[in-house]
Design a protein around this nucleic acid. Structure first.
Length: 549
DNA sequence: AGATGATGTAACC
DNA sequence: TGGTTACCCTCATC
């Protein structure tokens, strides 16, 4: 074997280009570039470049081995934009304000020509929201809803009761990101949270969705990426698998089925669950076993991330998934390609929910950074009645964002959704949880706390109380009006049940043992558990809730 | 304070 | 169609 040796005489000179520490503007950079031999510089540009980037600096070597072997290796340590890799500007945080790369489309609305800073949708969420057209499509849904629901709909929209300030409890119990939250249907003091489980426990993979059993709210069903649906008794903690869509076990990553969307059809007594290949499965609640055959409801091979039964017309099923569609089905005759409506989106649909009272509206969260409202009475289902630009980008480290209805709002227009992009609030980059009026597109309220700097993609409003539960990377946040006592103190049985792998030494150790610490201990003020990352913030008991205009 | 890496998937070709 | 790649405001830990 002949060792590759380079003759010292032909070893090229190494030139290191650097930014000067004080100057960063592109024009000045060009002036400062060392140009030892102008002719060779020109040659360099024609050569193939092998470049690596590290920490916003570009290290690039220009190899000239096949020619004279004499022109210099040029290592450039010039600062480049970490987004577009070009010099002359830099994207990233300047303090608590994020500066966008001007070469990329707006990170918020995805349109070219401006950045998030100047995006009209950032200034006002209602920008570009067109009033719904009062088309009357005379479709079958319209008749059903008009006859059955109009009398119950209030004519005057009541004002939202949103407190100026809220208190927040931080629960650090999950060892991985929170994926799912569910309030107990009857017991005000029970909240269920699911996480991305690492190993062990009821499921060995991500818990994607869970629902209380509507006929026996002491049990909970959960769908997981491990391909099973579990049924767990909350009193005993005993869990059983009621569906396994991989009866032959692991047959490779392309064959393994994972379960995402799930809901329970109370009247029919079935759990509806869908997989990552486009199929719907039914599980009979009485026998806790699979019933019927799987049905293709979305594009073959695409993930079905959400299922929701209409609260008033339970035979109407709403599904959504990665094929960019949400679909409405008639449960009485559901088979491939038989959907009543197809709600088209530009990107993946993270969630689709019927409005909680009348079931006549649908709100969807799509990865094109838009919330869409579909109204079966005042609009039609051919196109959304409203599109609201809102930052909830897909990110591999985050649970996908899902806009959730406020179940207590009689006008069915209030929606809660976490925000991806941050805003500079007194020097801290915070990601508020947004309350949006979908009838106007207006941002009604934004919930935030200077101590909570993480993103909260999972949010759920309490069915009866003024309580918001938020799920973040590893924490749960419980928000309630500041003037009220802590939720768990309202009744004597406060209890939070956390599904997932418990990491017991985390946080303040309030959950360190398995005893039912019910009252004050269960909720602790955020000051105790969460360390303030920004020293310029004092840990205040109450949280700012800012109103725009 | 700055570097590290765990990590899943949508969109593209 | 399947394989490849980027991924741009994570976040906890060292």
């Amino acid at each position: 074997m002949a060792p590759q040796t380079r003759r010292t005489s032909s070893f090229p000179k190494v030139i290191i280009e650097k930014d000067s520490d004080s100057e960063q503007s592109s024009s000045e950079e060009e002036e400062e570039e060392p140009e030892p031999e102008p002719e060779e510089e020109e040659e360099e540009e024609e050569e193939e470049e092998v470049s690596e980037r590290e920490n916003g600096k570009e290290v690039e070597e220009t190899l000239d081995t096949k020619r004279k072997g004499k022109s210099p290796i040029c290592i450039s340590l010039k600062k480049v934009c970490k987004v577009c890799k070009k010099a002359g500007h830099e994207a990233g945080f300047k303090g608590a304000t994020y500066i966008d790369c001007p070469m990329k489309p707006c990170f918020l609305c995805k349109m070219p020509g401006h950045t998030t800073m100047t995006c009209p949708h950032r200034v006002a969420t209602e920008f570009g929201v067109i009033p719904a057209s009062h088309r009357n499509a005379r479709n079958p849904l319209t008749y059903v809803f008009e006859r059955q629901l109009r009398p119950n709909k209030s004519r005057i929209k009541p004002a939202y009761v949103i407190p100026d300030q809220v208190s927040c409890a931080v629960i650090r119990y999950h060892s991985r990101r929170v994926t799912s939250l569910e309030f107990h249907p009857t017991n005000n003091n029970i909240l269920l949270s699911g996480d991305k489980i690492v190993y062990g426990n009821i499921h060995w993979s991500i818990l994607n969705n869970m629902r209380f059993n509507p006929v026996n709210d002491g049990t909970v069903y959960a769908a997981s990426s491990d391909g099973t649906v579990s049924c767990t008794d909350l009193e005993t903690g005993i869990s059983s698998s009621v569906l396994d869509v991989n009866p032959d076990g692991w047959q490779g990553p392309t064959n393994f089925r994972m379960l995402y969307g799930m809901d329970i059809h109370k009247e029919r007594g079935v759990v509806l669950v869908a997989d990552n290949f486009g199929y719907l499965y039914l599980v009979d609640i009485r026998s806790n076993s699979k019933t019927g055959e799987k049905i293709l409801i979305h594009k073959k091979g695409s993930k079905v991330v959400g299922l929701h039964c209409n609260p008033v017309q339970p035979d109407l099923l709403l599904s959504c998934g990665n094929d960019h569609f949400a679909r409405i089905w008639d449960m009485r005759r559901i088979e491939a390609n038989s959907s009543l409506y197809e709600l088209a989106h530009k990107r993946v649909v993270n969630s689709a929910y019927f409005s909680p009272l009348s079931g006549s509206k649908i709100v969807t969260t799509s990865q094109d950074n838009r919330l869409r409202v579909w109204d079966s009475i005042f609009g039609n289902l051919d196109s959304p009645s409203r599109e609201i630009v809102h930052s909830h980008d897909f990110n591999r480290h985050l649970t996908p964002f899902r806009a959730e209805w406020d179940p207590k709002d009689p006008s069915e227009s209030l929606v809660v959704v976490g925000r991806y992009i941050s805003e500079n609030y007194n020097g801290a980059a915070l990601h508020p949880i947004d309350f949006i009026d979908i009838s106007t597109g207006q941002l009604v309220a934004e919930v935030m706390d200077p101590n909570i700097t993480t993103i909260s993609p999972v949010n759920k409003l309490h069915p009866r109380d003024d309580v918001l539960a938020s799920g973040s990377s590893r924490s749960l946040f419980i928000w309630w009006p500041k003037d009220k006592c802590e939720p768990a103190e309202q009744k004597d049985e406060g209890k939070i049940i956390v599904c997932g792998k418990a990491e017991k030494k985390r946080g303040s150790g309030k959950f360190g043992d398995d005893s039912d610490d019910s009252d004050g201990d269960t909720f602790s003020s955020k000051g105790k558990n969460s360390k303030s990352k920004k020293s310029n913030f004092k840990s205040s008991k109450s949280t700012q809730k800012k109103f725009r205009r």
